[in-house]
Amino acid sequence: MTLTQQIITILMVAIGTMLTRFLPFLIFPAGKPTPPYIRFLGKALPGAVFGMLVIYCLKDVSIFSGNHAIPELIAIAVTTALHLWRRQMLLSIAGGTICYMLLMQLAF
């Protein structure tokens, strides 16, 4: 690949990514009322999206081989428990992450 071709490839990826980010705002501009169905989706989607992103983070973890996702499940349980107990975002994340690092480096 020449330098020009490399630049075009990178720009195409950037344009594709930006299309996915800008499209909803272009289709439903701020000046006009957004259709009720889209407003409903705006409220209903985030819960589903966050669920999807949790799974997305874990997509390369195999349940059937390796550690059988045990360290991940323990660390998620610790994160959840900490969060329900104190409801302090940074504490829950730090606790869960340290727990996972200890499990990976010492136990598994």
């Binding site: 990514t17 996915t20 980010r21 800008f22 499209l23 909803p24 705002f25 439903f28 701020a30 957004t34 889209i38 407003r39 989706l41 705006g42 409220k43 989607l45 985030p46 999206v49």
Partner: peptide, 9 residues
């Protein structure tokens, strides 16, 4: 990201 945009309108 399309979903994010819809949620962020």
């Amino acid at each position: 990201h399309l979903f994010y945009g819809i949620s962020m309108l």
